[in-house]
């Protein structure tokens, strides 16, 4: 049977952000913006959704007198990402599901 995909993660920009954060320790907002080619407004909205879901931590600080937003994936976020990825695999390998 196909597993349900987490709607928080099953969105292009949020998934892109989570995919990057899962492979690094932490990343600045500007880095995520550069890599996703998203607009600041859209990225902010999606980051807030991930934060509200408890999937990422957002830390705001000042560096060199400039505001800096640092994002980091949480333990809950890692678990959700793993569950999401396993669910995706059931769609990619439907024969595995038939065998079960």
């Amino acid at each position: 049977m196909f597993k349900e995909l987490d709607p928080i993660l099953h969105s292009q920009l949020r998934l892109a952000v989570m995919s990057m954060l899962i492979s690094v320790k932490e990343a600045e907002f500007i880095f995520l913006k550069e890599k996703t080619n998203a607009t600041s407004g859209n990225l902010s909205v999606q980051i807030n959704k991930l934060k509200e879901a408890g999937y990422i931590e957002v830390k705001k600080q000042f560096s060199n007198n400039y505001p800096q937003t640092i994002c980091k994936i949480t333990k809950q976020g890692i678990e959700a990402f793993e569950v999401y990825f396993k669910a995706l695999q059931t769609y990619m390998n439907p024969t595995d599901n038939l065998e079960q």
Binding site: S19, M20, S23, T36
Partner: peptide
């Protein structure tokens, strides 16, 4: 980036691309 109509294949490609 769009936020809708993401197929499982597109999701996996996106994850790979971002990593």
């Amino acid at each position: 980036m769009q936020t809708e109509n993401l197929s499982p294949k597109e999701s996996i490609d996106l994850i790979q691309g971002m990593i």
